[in-house]
Design a protein around this nucleic acid. Structure first.
Lengths: 114, 114
DNA sequence: TTGATATATTCCTTTATAAGCATATAATGC
DNA sequence: GCATTATATGCTTATAAAGGAATATATCAA
């Protein structure tokens, strides 16, 4: 990024793939302890803590202490600016309700055949 | 970004605000010469060329030569991965069309409550 | 208190990237 | 050919960021 640009924006925060992995892991709405993330994603503990620090700084995650654990929870609303921006271009790949219907049917089939 | 990560991903490309400015300027679907972008965004010509180079590398823009000009055009489909990713979280800020998707995801996920 | 566990932080090194300036390249007009 | 315009590229410098290893901090258990 630029010299004059602060690191505290959401777009930069999600540029790092491992941070997206962390976000994805929290996407269910459940909170997870740092150790769980470390184990699930196979990233070193300090690295996870640092990534969580970045995500925390931009408000994408929030923490709650419970004993010696710190539970991180996704604050997905902070991702809305990204959504808002990229949605501007939806029309270029044809966003339609049909697409969602298709997806629903696909998922329904998958569930049925498993 | 990480040591092992190539810069050729879309998420990194859009992390830079000036590149988003360029993308926004091209969002109308019309192509623009480099000089037009330079003038409109008040960024130095070499800087614009470099940013366009990054966008070109990840396929977000494409060029066509016409005389001494190079016209850049948005290739918005390349932004779809971002849209797809961030759309996963739409339900957290209540998207209208999304009730179907929500239901699907709730059913698909065997996750516990929290 | 001591020891163990969970997490954060600090230091160091390496890599990436952006900007500025100068220059190279390519096309055009004379 | 030469000058001009449009764009790209190379070089340098500054800054940021990520990873590793070590360490600090906090909490729990005994």
């Amino acid at each position: 990024m630029s010299r004059a640009t602060q690191r505290s924006d959401v777009f930069s925060a999600i540029a790092e793939p491992r941070r997206r992995d962390i976000i994805d892991m929290l996407s269910g709405g459940q909170s997870h302890a740092v150790g769980e993330i470390v184990e699930a994603l196979r990233i070193s503990q300090p690295s996870v803590s640092k990534h969580l620090g970045v995500l925390r700084k931009v408000g994408i995650v929030s923490v709650s202490k419970q004993g010696q654990h710190r539970f991180y929870r996704l604050n997905a609303k902070q991702l809305k600016p990204i959504h808002d921006w990229v949605t501007t271009f939806e029309r270029y790949w044809g966003h339609q309700v049909d697409r969602i219907k298709q997806r629903v049917e696909r998922k329904a089939k998958t569930r049925g055949s498993n």
